[in-house]
Amino acid sequence: MEGITFFSGLWFCLVAVLIAGYFILDGFDLGAGVLYPFIAKTKTEKAVIRRSIGPVWDGNEVWLLTAGGALFAAFPPAYATTFSGFYLAIMLVLFGLIVRAVSLEYRVHDEKWGGLWNLLFFLGSLLPALLFGVAIGNVYAGIPMSALGDYTGFPLFGLITPFTLLCGVLGLLMFMAAGASWIAQKAPKPSELQERAAKIRTILQICTLGVFVIVTVYALFGINLEMLGGLAAILRYLFAALFVVALIAAIFFGKKGNDLFSFIAQSASAFVLVGLFAASMFPNLVIASANSVGQNITIMNAANSELTLMWMTIITCVGLPLVLLYHVISYRTFRGRLTDEDLDY
């Protein structure tokens, strides 16, 4: 396409990959946090859930910082418009992430405030898990923008429509399914917690499929986004099909009792869902709604200079292999189901 260079196209894909990485990794620990008060009946079960995500949640969350940084570094107008336009929503996500991080670390040392930390861990997981989908729904459905790209709609409540709420619910279900899937493959087996997680995992995955169909139909017929044909169209069909296949595989593996494979298939579904979103948006980054003065923010009008993108690519070529290595080390060190001994670290 005209105006899209090798580097700007590459960075569109890289930002999508970083978002997908975030949704997969922090997805399961956010989901575990949402399920935490419902799925864990005893103190030990609560401790198992916290311990299962304890060594990895921080690294998972760095994917969000990297994705945000990459959006800023590659397409600053898109970063500026969305973060300032979604101001209160972003702040709610932020407060969620803050209290969740601290409650997760402090709960184990603080019996007296245990109830408060448990509540904050749940709320702090719920807010981001719900609002990320709402934000993505808005980017896709379009927001009113000034000529300079500043959001002109009503703060926070202007962002909530039936469609964006549905996107929020889809995201929440995805995160919760991933959380249940994570717990099901980390909890001791056999245990009541593991059985409960496995059961709710299947229910959540079926609900996800249902809501996905509704969102897709709504997006295709209710929102008139002009989408590119050609390769982008092929990728859209492919990703949509793969999403359904991956989720069905996750359900299938779960039924077979292969919890690890079920989790991997669940993760794959999150990856292709972000792929589907990216292929639908390309080459747009933020859609301007029909009543907007401003234009869509696109790769063409938002990309940074080639020099900056080249340096960012060099930094990524050095950094990304290292990041993957750290993750291999971390997930290998803490692999396998938890035992009683793991709760005393």
Binding site: F72, P77, I315, L320
Partner: peptide, 14 residues
């Protein structure tokens, strides 16, 4: 954005 975003992304990544 052409300058300032890169170190933030690099900080997270590296």
């Amino acid at each position: 954005g052409d300058i300032f975003g890169a170190p933030l992304a690099a900080e997270a990544l590296l």
